[in-house]
Amino acid sequence: MKILGGRAGVAIATAAGAALTVVGPVQTASAITTYKVDSNCDHKSCAVGYSGRLHIFYNSKENNGYYSGMAHFYGNVYDYAGETVSYNGATATRYDYVFGKNVLGNTASGTGQAVKNNAAMVENCAPYDGYRVYYNSGYQGSSQYFDHTYGSVNCAGGVSVNLNSTLKNENASQHFA
């Protein structure tokens, strides 16, 4: 298995433990299938349920962010734009990260919009892992820490915190902390 740039989370179990390689859209443009997803848990192994994830919201606290479009990511995410994976170098699949429905399961402001340019608020639902959000992809630029829930599951005791600035122009990233 080839692991690129610390995006080690690509290690999902494919049936035969097939090699995973991240490739760009240029090489295999004809074979690429693109999905818009609101989580990295569709193509990676994540903690069961919502436990352990960083929830990212379209709106800020002041703008009722908790009920705006939400995306959720587990572990280290190198680039909030998304990622491209291919199995055995064959058909490549592109996952673009967008905000999904809100916590109530309804279409809300931000639903369907790209995470990379629009995130305003974060809630860390991980019981024991802090997270850092970086204002550029590849863990570059300044960063901001989001505390865990001190053992609570289902995000009980989770705290919503505004990002220092709405993500814009630059692709951001997140890492366990």
Partner: peptide
């Protein structure tokens, strides 16, 4: 060695959570 990547090995998984 890693280009723009980080020197991290293996899957990055979070801390295990005891059942409550």
């Amino acid at each position: 060695q890693y280009g723009y990547g980080l020197p991290e090995n293996g899957p990055q998984t979070g801390a295990s959570t005891p059942e409550l």
